[in-house]
């Protein structure tokens, strides 16, 4: 739900302000790759109606955001192309290599799924780099990144809950480790987010 909220905040910003200033297209494209490689089981692995609907929402909204940033006349002009310089392959290639080395089963679907878990953990990095370079971070962008970080932190709590409360719960070390790293990457952002919130000041990251 926090993940869904983050997407709603981002779409709200882009749609109402007709601007994507401060939003990293690189991170959006990495997320698209994360969702495509993870939800290859969309038709073969039915978990629940909720699960299927959320998968479709995450996939379509991410491609919608990318379309807005690349294709929409006004939104495209507000994109900070010169600042958003992080290279995809710096993250994609190491994650692919890691997925080929560390996985639970050597099948195409499993390796791609593992790759998506690793890539998700670091997909925020281009956005954090852009954020540091952006002087005026608007509230919607700040809250968007906060929700994007919070959903994995909340997963950590959910994993602990499931571990103790569910009888047939399986240990999933790859997901747990990647989730911990993903949350740790946000630690710095969370610190400045709460600091600015407490002081009622505009969010600003130190250079």
């Amino acid at each position: 739900m926090t993940h869904l909220a983050s997407i709603c905040l981002l779409l709200l910003k882009i749609h109402t302000m007709k601007s994507c200033a401060g939003v990293s297209l690189k991170t959006q494209e990495l997320y698209a790759l994360v969702f495509v490689t993870r939800y290859l089981d969309l038709f073969s692995n039915f978990v629940s109606m909720y699960n299927t609907i959320m998968k479709i929402i995450f996939l379509s909204s991410t491609f919608g955001i990318i379309w807005y940033m690349r294709g929409h006349k006004l939104v495209r002009q507000s994109y900070d192309k010169e600042q958003d310089t992080f290279r995809h392959y710096f993250l994609v290639i190491p994650c692919m290599v890691l997925a080929l080395v560390i996985h639970s089963k050597f099948t195409l679907l499993e390796v791609l799924w593992t790759f998506s878990i690793y890539l998700e953990a670091v997909a925020i990095l281009p956005q954090l780099v852009l954020l540091q370079r952006t002087r005026n971070i608007d509230n919607l962008t700040g809250n968007y990144i906060f929700c994007l970080g919070a959903y994995r932190a909340l997963y950590l709590l959910n994993w602990i809950y499931r571990y103790f409360m569910e009888k047939n719960y399986h240990a999933q070390w790859i997901t747990w480790m990647a989730g911990m790293i993903q949350t740790a990457i946000y630690a710095d952002f969370f610190y400045y987010y709460f600091k600015s919130w407490k002081k009622n000041e505009r969010l600003k990251l130190p250079a």
């Binding site: 993940h3 089981d41 692995n45 978990v47 629940s48 699960n51 959320m54 998968k55 995450f58 639970s104 089963k105 799924w113 997963y155 399986h170 240990a171 999933q172 997901t175």
Partner: peptide, 10 residues
Amino acid sequence: TKTAAPKDEL
């Protein structure tokens, strides 16, 4: 042998 964790998360 242990079965793999079912993929029930997003």
